[in-house]
Every structure is written in C-alpha cells, then in structure tokens.
Design a protein around this nucleic acid. Structure first.
Length: 139
RNA sequence: CUGACGGAACGCGCGGCCGCGCAGUAUCAUGCCGAAAGGUUUUACUGUGAGGAAAGUCCGGGCUUCACAGGGCAGGAUAACGGAUAACGUCCGCCGACGGCUUCCCCCAAGGGUUGCCGCCCGGGAAAGUGCAACAGAGAUAUACCGCCGUCUUACGAGACGGUAAGGGUGGAAAGGCGAGGUAAGAGCUCACCGGCUCCCCGGGUGACCGGGGAGCCCUGUAAACCCUAUCCGAAGCAACACCGUAUGCAGGUCGGUCUGCCCGGCCUAUACCUGCGGGUGGCGCGGGGAUCUCCCCCGGAGCCGUGGGGUAACUCACGGCAAAGAUAGAUGGUCGCGGGAAAGGGUAACACCUUUUUACAGAACCCGGCUUACAGUUUCGGCAGCAGC
RNA sequence: GGAGAAGUACUCAAGUAGGCCGAAGAGGCGCCCCUGCUAAGGGUGUAGGUCGGGUAACCGGCGCGAGAGUUCGAAUCUCUCCUUCUCCG
C-alpha cells in the first residue's frame, strides 16, 4: 500500500493546531480530516480512499543520517500497522518523532502507532491480519 | 617482534522474507485529476541505486543570467625563486630563516664554526613616508639616575657647570662582539679579527641564491598597523535562469534600467521601476538535471585504470581498456539467520575453543579540481627507537 | 541548497586604529531603613567563573565560544573549527 506525503507547509500547521493528538512513548500522532480526500480518491484509478502522511523529525535528534533513518523506520512502522489492521482513511496524519525513536526498532514504532491509532479511534474493530491478543499487548 | 610518527590503499560480506526511488517492456485502459500547462494510479519482469570525506562552504573553475563600448578612482586577493595546471591561496622541486638530531674542528667550560638528515614557515619591502611601542627604566630612537673624570666654589657635609655610554640597574628591544692602542675619564675615536648591510668585480646556477675579492657603512621592533611594489580580479548564484499556464488590486514616489560602490562616458526602455498597504498560498507545472534504446551527429569528462615514451618530481604525450544514482518534505530500508574484524571475560604452557559486547565518521541535491575538519578498524611502505637471537 | 550576521559575569550588554582591562553600566544578589509581615520604594555594598594554597582576610595561575598563529604583549589582528540567528523562491 502506497501512501502520499504532505508537501504543503500550511497543512502541517493546521494539523498541529486543529488535529486530534495522541502522545505515545516514542512518537506523537496528529490526525485531521483531509478536505481534499474526495478529490484524491477520484484521482485513484481503483477509487480507494487514501491517507496523507507527514513526518516531522527535528534537527535536535541528530544529523542527516540519523533523521533519514528515523523517517525510514517511521514509514516502515506505518506500513506494518496498515498491513495488519484496517486504518480509517481520508485523513491527514502527521507523525512527530521523539528522542526515543532514534534507537527504536520498527516493531517498537509499530506498537506505538497501533496504540495511538486505537486511542484516536482510527482502527476499525475487525482486525485484518493480526490477532486480537496482539492488540491487547499493544495496549 | 613491539612501539610511536609520516605517506598510501581499503573502510564489513553473503542469503531468505517484506518494502522504496528511477529507467525500460508489457498490462489495468481510448481511465482519472486539473481551467490549462501538465501530472498520475495497478500488477509482473529486467536493469540500476551514496562517500572518502557526499560535510564545512575556505579557495579555484565550468555553466547560467544581468539590454556587455571603454576609462579613472575606490575595493578585494596573492607574495623568495622555477615549474605543473583549465585555474588556484593547490601540487612538485629548489633557495633562505628557525628548531631538533648528527659528523668533524676550536675549546677547561660556556659557546662558536662546519657536514648530513628530518621537521617547520600566510617567507616581498622597515636604508620611501606616517603611526604605535603600555608598565618598568635616567633615557625608547634618542638620553646622564647612580657611577667615573675635569674645572670652579666650599661653611669640608657637599654643591654648581661640563665631559663620558666602559660598569650598575630596567626592559621584548639600550647604538654589533672581543682584544689592543688611546685618554683626565671614556667612546669604532683608531687598528686587527669576527659578524651584519649596501654597492662594484669575478666564478657557478634558468632563477631565488651561493662562493671569493674590493670599497663604504653599523642603521631597534612591528607591514596577520596604514602604506609601497609586482601580479590578478565585473557581479550574482540552480531558491541562478529559461519555457508554458494562471492571476495581476489600491496609494505614493521617481524618468527608470544597466558589468556591483563613486565619477566620466556609452547603451537599452517609455508604463518601466521602487516603496507601503491589501489579497492569495497560487502550478502535487516542464526544462536546467544526467552517457545509453533503430539510425546519424556530438561523443560523455580538465574522468579512472594499465602499458610504453619524456621529466628529479608534480605532471604530460601515445595506445589500449573500464564505466551506468537522480530524489523533490527528499528513494538505498526493515526483520531474521550465517560469517568476518575488534575488545573484554573464561579457558590453555601457548594456541584452539566458549560467552558477551561492539562494527567508526557520516547521506548525493547543477557539475568538477583542491584545501580543511570528523573517523572504529585493517593492510602496506619508509626511516627511527626498544627488546631478543645470530 | 545558497548567501550573510553575531558569540563578553546568572541576564541584557559597553569596551574592537593592540598596552594602566578581568571587564564600564543596568537588572539580579547581599545588608540596612520603611511595614504587624510581604511586595513596592529609599539607602548602601562587595565579590563576581574555575583551579591551587591558606583557619580566615587574602594570594597566585588560567579564563571575553574553542584551538592554533603574528607580536615584547591579543577581548581586539590572521587562520581553522563550534554554536545561535537572519535572508532567498
């Protein structure tokens, strides 16, 4: 499943100001309804709804190598959650890395994201790939 | 064998599963988004995918634009000499200063000369001019505090005037050093030797410079203070710029722009430019920006490697061969296993072996040549030091 | 990605044609007055960081972002790094 990145700076500002927020151990997640989601859905040939993802990794966490690595791990974590669960679509999601994510593995990030999405009501009750017990441990 | 130093090279490997960017082919499919320019989705296969520093942005270029005559002033950069190079503040060689070790000589010693090697130096000019040199010291570019000597006065305690840079003390620096003559006492005042500077002659070298001889002179330091001399320099930078598309209000000002500042001069333009306020995040735009695919042309780019010639070397010439990033909130990853290296612990006579930990610095963003800085570990070369053996 | 600017006590900062500079001034701080007690206000004062020595008063070394260099001497001049901030389309 591919995802589309947020390119506009003002959308980041809106997500911080108006979005729903959940703080996990290694990441902070902001979620906002995407007004252009319908247009983007119609642009897709298979007419699938889509989430737009933005990643924020500040310079405080390290140099370019460290920050690129954190972004890769965040993307891999989102991908793992999306593979195993059904995430509500048509939203802007901004994921901010905290200092703990520098040394984290992608499985740790996936646990945090799953916890955050559940708190924000983004996960549908029907689990796709993962079992129900896995969700409990994530809690 | 070990150690530190300097130069050079390398800077983790293999596999399974899941995944990412780009290019190509096929496919969903005469689709969808957008006003347009244009963009883009699925799946499969094939190919390909970060560095020695990609970094800092400190120098030098290419490239692009500025409506490009030219000149002067200002400004900036470099600094022995010769060469290399597209160019450089880089590199190579060489000269000189300084420091270390060393050979030999003078020598009680201190020290001096000399031979060779290594290190190091933002190494022009201070006898063109100006400035500055705190404190200390009598005196800082010219001086008399103590002292020494002479004359005069004297109340015999000394005082006044003059001479003197040998001795004392201060300082980073005090009129070159040392010996003799000389003198009232002294002084390059005179002379010998040594040292330095300038000029001339001879010899060597492309040259800086070196060696020898002669004449004159003995002069503080600082140019990473102003400055002088020689050489070089237009500016801005891919967020440059070009193309397409869309939008383009109000008020005020000025003729405006131009190779930057100022002046002269030239050129271009006539609703162009500047300032303030308002509105809007406006195009998920294209190119710049990547050799390749059938042909042709240009070949890519100051590219790397090998062989041979030239050169002390940097480098260069000829021939042959090798290549494959191109993202755009920014692609190289995740996870598991095996292996390699290193460290620590256990173990051993020493290995072997076992366990644990660790595997640096760091990410292309238009492209090259350097410099600087960061860096776990490995290999190799060079001279040096130590230990052991012959 | 590119182009610039600035780092001085706890904070804001002056000092930059080299020298009585370890540092003007203000806030802050300490002490006193005022008040039943605070705040505000008034007066006054010293040290300022760190290391070493000393019972203490005090004395000495190093310290102007860090490290080299020039100079007799550097906060100031030169070079190389580090940090912070600003600008561009």
């Amino acid at each position: 499943m591919k995802y589309r990145a947020i390119g506009e700076n003002h959308l980041y500002g809106k997500a911080y100001a108006k979005g729903k927020k959940c703080v996990a151990a290694r990441v902070v997640v902001y979620v906002l309804r995407d007004y252009r989601a319908e247009a983007l859905r119609r642009a897709d040939p298979l007419k699938r709804p889509i989430n737009r993802i933005g990643l924020t990794v500040t310079k405080k966490l390290g140099g370019a190598v460290v920050r690129s690595r954190v972004k890769r791990i965040l993307r891999e974590g989102y991908r793992a959650v999306d593979r195993e669960n059904v995430i509500a679509k048509g939203n802007l999601i901004v994921i901010v890395a905290r200092s703990g994510s520098v040394t984290a593995k992608s499985t740790d990030i996936a646990k945090d994201l799953k916890y955050a999405f559940r708190k924000l009501g983004m996960l549908s009750p029907i689990s796709r790939g993962g079992s129900e017990s896995e969700c409990k441990t994530a809690k």
